[in-house]
Every structure is written in C-alpha cells, then in structure tokens.
C-alpha cells in the first residue's frame, strides 16, 4: 500500500485516510511514520507546503468481519457490524479514490463505497491491488471484488493472472 502511495502525487491525492483492522497494531503506525517522512521531505524541498499540512493523514480503525476461529453464527452479526462501521467511515470521509490491497477488512469498505455510489451519494473510484503472492488464483478478497465487479480497476501482479481473470489489469509488479 505504502509503495503505491509513495508513487502517487501526494499533493493531488490528498487528504489521505488509512483504514486498518482494529486488531492490526502495525500497519497504521507504519503508514503514519511514512507520512511524516513524506511531509518532512516535501517541506524541506519546497518552501510553500502550508495547505497540505492542515489536513494531515488520518487513521481509521475498523472491526474485523471475522476473527480466525470465530463461529459462523456470530460472524453474521460481526459482519453486519463491520459493514455498518465501514459505511460510517465512508460517509464521513467521502473518498474520491478507494485504494485497497486485500485483507478481508477491505470488503465492507468497498461494499459501502459501491453502495453509496450506486445511490449517487458518492463519486468514488475503487481500485484493488492483488498480492504479488497470488500467481495462479485470486485471494478471497480478490475473488469477491472480481465477481461483484465492484472495483473500477483490479490489478494483478503477474501477466498470467490478467489473462486468466477477464477484466483484471497487469501494470507491473510492486517488488
């Protein structure tokens, strides 16, 4: 995720909000540390960087739909809860671009954005990047987004995968 944001025009794709699973203690910290590095390097390169600092990067935490080992019965309730939570975050942030890279947490966020777009409440592009580890088959998140056609762009990191899955895009590997 951070490798992609690194490559994007950070003044254009701003403000940025990172959505992480509440049980994930690492990713959010990593993202904010990276954001700080970008902010300090851009302010040392150019003297005028006042406006972007006012709306700094945000972090939102979302409950997981299902923990490993959780029963399917209670999963229904927690999935509904995380969908409602994701819907609230999407409504609050009103993203123009939703960039997701696969953990299960991304599905309720994508579903919410897709729903609000269908209701003409939101103008948001959904972009999914499949893991480079996936050389033969999409992950579960990838399969859901591919089958539902929720994503405007669905990147795979191997050309063979783009041939196998119609509509998937290969535009190079991240590593």
């Amino acid at each position: 995720m951070l490798m992609m944001v690194e490559q994007l025009d950070k003044a254009h794709y701003s403000p940025r909000c990172y959505v992480v699973a509440a049980t994930d203690r690492m990713s959010g910290t990593k993202a904010l540390t990276k954001e700080q590095a970008w902010a300090s390097s851009s302010s040392s390169n150019s003297t005028s960087s006042g406006s972007s600092k006012a709306s700094g990067p945000l972090l939102e935490e979302i409950p997981r739909s299902r923990e490993v080992g959780q029963s399917y019965l209670t999963s229904v309730a927690t999935t509904l809860y995380s969908l409602a939570f994701a819907a609230w975050i999407v409504l609050k942030q009103r993203p123009a671009l939703l960039l997701v890279n696969g953990p299960g947490t991304c599905i309720p966020v994508c579903a919410a954005a897709f729903l609000f777009r269908a209701l003409l409440l939101l103008d948001c592009r959904i972009v999914y990047v499949e893991s480079i580890a996936r050389v033969e088959r999409l992950s579960l998140s990838g399969k859901i987004l591919h089958a539902s056609r929720m994503a405007d762009l669905l990147f795979v990191q191997w050309p063979e995968m783009a041939k196998r899955y119609k509509g998937a895009t290969y535009a190079g590997r991240l590593y």
């Binding site: 490798m3 490559q7 994007l8 025009d9 990147f155 535009a171 190079g172 991240l174």
Partner: peptide
C-alpha cells in the same frame, strides 16, 4: 528484475483524471 509501482500509479492517474491534469 525489480518491479515498481509506477505502472499502477499511472493507471490510477488515468482512472481518476489525474493523467490529464499532469
């Protein structure tokens, strides 16, 4: 041959209209 995110970033730029701006 090491990859990078430039291809993905360019495709996202094209999708969002950022490519035209550039």
């Amino acid at each position: 041959a090491r990859g990078d995110a430039s291809g993905i970033a360019a495709a996202i730029d094209a999708l969002t209209g950022r490519a035209g701006l550039r």
